Structure formats: C-alpha cells, structure tokens
Simulated assay, not measured.
Amino acid sequence: MDDNLGLVHLLRAVTVEFGLRQAEFAAANGMHPTDVRALICLLDAARADEPATVGLLGTRLGLNSAGTTAAIDRLERLGHVERVRDPLDRRRVLLRVRPEAVRLGQEFFGPAIDALLGALAPLSPAERDTIRRFLTAAHEAFSA
C-alpha cells in the first residue's frame, strides 16, 4: 500500500475510534451523539474567543434551526449548557458550557488527551509543525 494512503487510513482509524469514544461518553451521560459534538463546538468557540450563538452552533453542526434548538434544549435540561444574554447586545443569546459538563468531559477524555500529550512531548517543534500542517490540511479537505 502507498505510504501516503496508509497515513490517510490511519487518520480514518483515529477518527473512527474517537467517534466511538464520543458515542460511549454520550451514552454514559444520557446524551445524543450530536449533543457531544455540540459541546465540542461550544468549547472550541470559547477557546477561540468567539461568541457562541445558536446560529454559530447550527452552522458548525450542519443543523437547521429546529435541530439546533432541540440539541440546546437537551443539553440545557441535562445541566450541561446555559443560555445567557450577551452583555454587549442584550438582544443576543449566547451559549455557555457549564463547569459540570467540562468536568465530565475531562474525567472521560482526560486520560486519552494525556496520552496524546505524552506522545507529542518528545517530538521536536519541527515535527509537531509537520503534524499540525497535515492535520490542518485534513481538516480543510473535509470541511470544504
């Protein structure tokens, strides 16, 4: 097999395993798999200092308005997300992941994240940059 194609297959295997862990997390916490993706999107928005609006979440998840609202309602009922008024524009509602949801995610995914960080630790900055470039290109290929 072509070595490049082997890398693509390895990336696919990683994404499949990650998806399985997401499904396990969802089932263990009474969530739909879309709810886990929604939490990830909201946490990513917070890390990027982006306003986490209903519209942003719907776009990132590829859901219509009704589907987005249903996911938010489920997460709110479970106590994982809260709707808050934007302090800069009181007409706009922002979504915030509650600390309890962050804790649940850290408890479940923390060991795997720690293992990944351990695998990256011995790599040189140049090697990490190569991985970053490849993963960025993979992300762009699938989000185009």
Rank of each mutant, 00 (worst) to 15 (best):
N4G: 14
N4P: 01
N4I: 08
L5A: 09
L5Q: 14
G6I: 08
G6D: 14
L7N: 06
L10P: 01
R12A: 14
V16W: 11
E17H: 15
E17I: 07
F18Q: 11
G19T: 10
R21D: 09
Q22I: 07
A23N: 12
A23V: 10
E24Q: 15
A26W: 04
A27K: 09
N29I: 02
G30V: 07
H32Y: 11
P33V: 09
D35M: 03
A38W: 02
A38T: 13
A38I: 04
L39F: 06
L39I: 09
I40F: 10
C41V: 15
L42K: 04
L43H: 13
D44H: 10
D44M: 13
A45E: 05
A45Q: 08
A48G: 10
D49N: 12
D49I: 10
D49A: 13
E50P: 00
P51S: 01
A52H: 00
T53V: 06
V54E: 09
L57G: 01
G58C: 09
T59G: 08
R60V: 10
L61S: 04
L61Q: 05
L63V: 04
L63W: 08
L63I: 00
L63H: 11
L63A: 00
N64D: 11
S65V: 12
S65F: 05
A66L: 07
A66K: 11
A66T: 05
G67Y: 01
G67R: 06
G67I: 01
G67H: 03
T68M: 12
T69A: 00
A70Q: 09
R74S: 11
R74V: 01
E76A: 14
L78P: 02
L78S: 10
H80P: 01
H80F: 14
E82C: 10
R83P: 02
D86F: 04
L88F: 14
L88A: 15
D89R: 07
R90S: 14
R91I: 03
R91T: 13
R92G: 08
R92H: 08
V93T: 05
L95E: 05
L95T: 01
R96K: 11
V97A: 02
R98P: 02
R98F: 00
P99D: 06
E100R: 15
A101D: 01
V102G: 08
V102P: 13
L104K: 11
L104T: 02
G105Y: 04
E107Q: 07
E107H: 10
E107D: 14
F109H: 02
G110T: 00
G110A: 03
P111V: 01
P111G: 04
P111W: 02
A112W: 03
A112P: 02
I113A: 14
D114A: 06
A115Q: 09
L117D: 11
G118V: 06
G118W: 05
G118T: 08
A119I: 00
A119D: 11
L120C: 02
L120M: 14
L120Y: 07
A121S: 07
P122W: 00
P122F: 06
P122E: 00
S124N: 03
P125E: 00
P125S: 05
